[in-house]
Design a protein around this nucleic acid. Structure first.
Lengths: 219, 219
DNA sequence: TAGATTGTTAATCGATTAACAATC
DNA sequence: TAGATTGTTAATCGATTAACAATC
């Protein structure tokens, strides 16, 4: 139960990352006209432990659930969206307009998660002044001016591994507080800056190993 | 130290995901003509604990390091690449040729990680028989035939959240053993099937919260 | 009332970090 | 030899899961 006049409730990163799964599941159930839902039900739907679900929801839920009936689904969805900050929009810039950069620029779904990419940057002359999904592509020269003027706090890095650290340094110089890094490198940043890695090489390592183990077992 | 005639060395998922970072760092140093490298050096370069680095390398390295000098960088790189299976190629199919699917199809870098996307599938008539980066796009009808014929073990899901579970079920039906899931949903799969999630909604939750916390502190 | 479910405290598990002997 | 570094055992830390009283 979350008291009204509280500050931000502490939550671990790993728990935080589970919340969008709850939200997705609850919205699905909501569409099926389900009105109440219990932790054991959610746990079953998402293959989680039911105590874990209850603990996660205790952080998020303003008024908690009721024994026997569980949580009111509409209220719980609202609490999750509020906790995840989907109501207030965070603006971001994207650096590196390659295939992946273009894909992220084109993606319309970020609105739902409270993210707005306001502009993209690249050094390639051929890409400049193009528009993708109504987002302009500027030269890196203009990064600082735009970020400071619009008080941008999120930088998305979709440049190659070799350039990622330099771009990261520039973004921080421009006042960015959180970096979404798609380059397969470790970025060194000051203590108060957050780097969220989306490292496909790491994911592929997990996939490849699972296959190796599975195939070994069948021998 | 890894004895020659061993089976696959056990490793935790979280340690496995660190290995590509080591590899990237070592290759960078190799380019700088560094010949030997120590765990404390790597730990410093990647902002990790040095004991953790040594334990990770102990799993991967065939002959270990030497006190005082550390590891021979060329050998360690070879050991890592072998451990990660970058020498033998895993074939994959991709389902869902939207913006993200196209970006992944276009990406040339997967070769380096031992992944080859052999074909893509969609249900949209307009996308069929197109070719992206030499990869054909087929109708879902042809999924099973192709997967079974080529013995495909990896399925990449880049369809929308609502369709992801159905696509996942089909892939498993086709003999896929590991699923790389870009849809922001939890997929239910049999025990022996691995799902590796690339959930951008989870990442955004982390970014958004960091901003909320940082901004709260400045008030 | 009976029992499903909540919220929370205690126990377990796994990963990280500290301590330390061995060695090049 | 002296000391940096290795590999490993022990201690710590945090997250997950089990146990249980409270309650609708």
């Amino acid at each position: 139960m979350l008291d009204q006049n509280s500050r931000l409730r502490p939550i671990s990163k790993i728990a935080l990352q589970r919340l969008p799964y709850y939200l997705n599941y609850l919205k699905k159930k909501q569409k099926e006209a389900v009105k109440n839902i219990s932790a054991p039900m959610i746990a079953n739907g998402l293959s989680l432990n039911e105590v874990q679900v209850r603990k996660d929801l205790a952080i998020v839920s303003a008024n908690g659930g009721k024994p026997k009936t569980g949580y009111v689904i509409d209220i719980l969805i609202g609490d999750l969206e509020k906790f995840l900050g989907y109501d207030n929009v965070n603006q971001a810039v994207l650096v590196g307009v390659g295939q992946l950069g273009k894909a992220l620029l084109s993606y319309k779904g970020f609105d739902d998660y409270g993210l707005e990419i306001v502009a993209a940057f690249d050094t390639d002359q051929n890409k400049l002044d193009l528009t993708i999904n109504d987002k302009c592509i500027f030269h890196m020269d203009k990064l600082k001016d735009l970020c400071e003027r619009l008080k941008i706090h999120i930088g998305i890095i979709t440049v190659s591994a070799v350039n990622a650290q330099a771009v990261c340094d520039q973004l921080i110089e421009c006042g960015v507080l959180a970096v979404w890094n798609f380059a397969p490198v470790h970025l060194k940043v000051p203590e108060h800056i957050l780097v969220q890695d989306e490292n496909m090489a790491s994911s592929l390592a997990v996939l490849s190993r699972h296959l190796a183990e599975t195939i070994e077992k069948t021998n």
